[in-house]
Every structure is written in C-alpha cells, then in structure tokens.
C-alpha cells in the first residue's frame, strides 16, 4: 500500500501568533483528524514541528565528510512555512487527497501531498 507524506504549511506571518484559546481550538481540530484517520487505519505517523525560526539547514560541500555549512532557518525563506506532517497509508492518490482535505492545515493554510518512494518495489 502506498504511503503519502501530507506536509502542512501555514503563512509565515501567523507563526507564533494567536492566543492560547486560538491554539487550543486548532489543536482540538487536529485531535479530531488524528482520531478519524487513526480509526480508519490510514495514519502511520506524523509530528508537529516547532516554529520555523528553530530550524537549522545544513549542507555538506564536496561530498561525505566535507565542510558542513549551517544556515540559521528553514531551507527556503518563503511566505509559507512547514509546520508539521502526517504519514498516511492509502490505496491511491484519491484516498490520500480526501484525507488531506480533512487536515485542519488545509483550511488554515495548505497541505502538500507527496507520495513516498517504495524501495521494495522493483523497477
């Protein structure tokens, strides 16, 4: 069964904003999704991420063992930031998209659905 990463993005300017009440309301929405997707057996994993300013991006120059360049911040400075992700196991893209449409991030921001590579599949 294919796996899909549902990557949850939200506008950068809303990061860390909102009152504790707002936060509790959104968390309650995520709990509903977690319960529903969990009960349906499609939820394989997922995490919420700390704000994007806690991110460190690294790149190694000249191959393995080379110098590591650290950049303070996420990979791409865009108006949308990655806030968390789910790993969903679904029969096809349609099912994955229908679950993605139930993730609160889909109405608070955007959800990108990416199929995961299955290394057991011969090619």
């Amino acid at each position: 069964m294919p796996k899909y990463a549902a990557l949850i993005y939200s506008p950068a300017e809303t990061e860390g904003m909102g009152t504790p009440e707002d936060w509790a309301k959104v968390m309650a929405e995520y709990n509903v999704f977690g319960e529903e997707a969990g009960a349906a057996g499609v939820l394989v994993g997922g995490e919420a991420l700390h704000d994007s300013h806690t991110a460190t991006t690294i790149s190694v120059s000249g191959g393995k063992g080379g110098d590591t360049l650290h950049t303070d911040g996420p990979f791409a400075e865009t108006k949308d930031v990655l806030g968390g992700f789910y790993l969903l196991e679904c029969s096809d893209l349609d099912e994955a998209l229908s679950w993605a449409a139930r993730i609160p991030g889909a109405w608070h921001g955007k959800v990108e659905v990416r199929p995961c590579v299955d290394f057991t599949e011969g090619q």
Binding site: S91, D92, L93, D94, V113, P115
Partner: peptide
C-alpha cells in the same frame, strides 16, 4: 506522476 503518486 500517475505511476508514482498512484493516481487511480
């Protein structure tokens, strides 16, 4: 994309 994303 059809193959990789399993578009049904």
């Amino acid at each position: 994309k059809i193959a990789g994303a399993h578009i049904p």
